[in-house]
């Protein structure tokens, strides 16, 4: 029986989450709050990094 693809789902969630952070970053930029926009960019990048790590696991799990 094929196991539930937790890592794939989590990867998708993390990537979508990082996009939300980037979207928020743009809205802060339009309000000229550059510090908050910078912090949101960092959060988006870190979330994407974590998503990338999970994607590696999902890929390995899939090809195993």
């Amino acid at each position: 029986m094929k196991s539930f693809p937790y890592f794939q789902l989590l990867t998708l969630l993390m990537m979508a989450g990082s996009l939300v952070f980037f979207w928020e970053c743009v809205s802060y930029l339009s309000r000229r709050d550059y510090v908050a926009a910078g912090m949101l960019t960092l959060i988006g990048l870190f979330t994407m990094w974590a998503g990338g790590e999970l994607a590696r696991l999902a890929l390995a799990e899939r090809s195993a």
């Binding site: 960092l42 959060i43 870190f46 979330t47 974590a50 790590e53 590696r56 390995a60 195993a64």
Partner: peptide
């Protein structure tokens, strides 16, 4: 290498670092 890591079922330390930083 990735397959060997995946058998453990746990992400690499980089994942935890990224999460802590976020």
């Amino acid at each position: 290498t990735l397959r060997r890591q995946a058998r453990t079922g746990r992400p690499r330390p980089q994942f935890y670092i990224a999460m802590v930083l976020a």
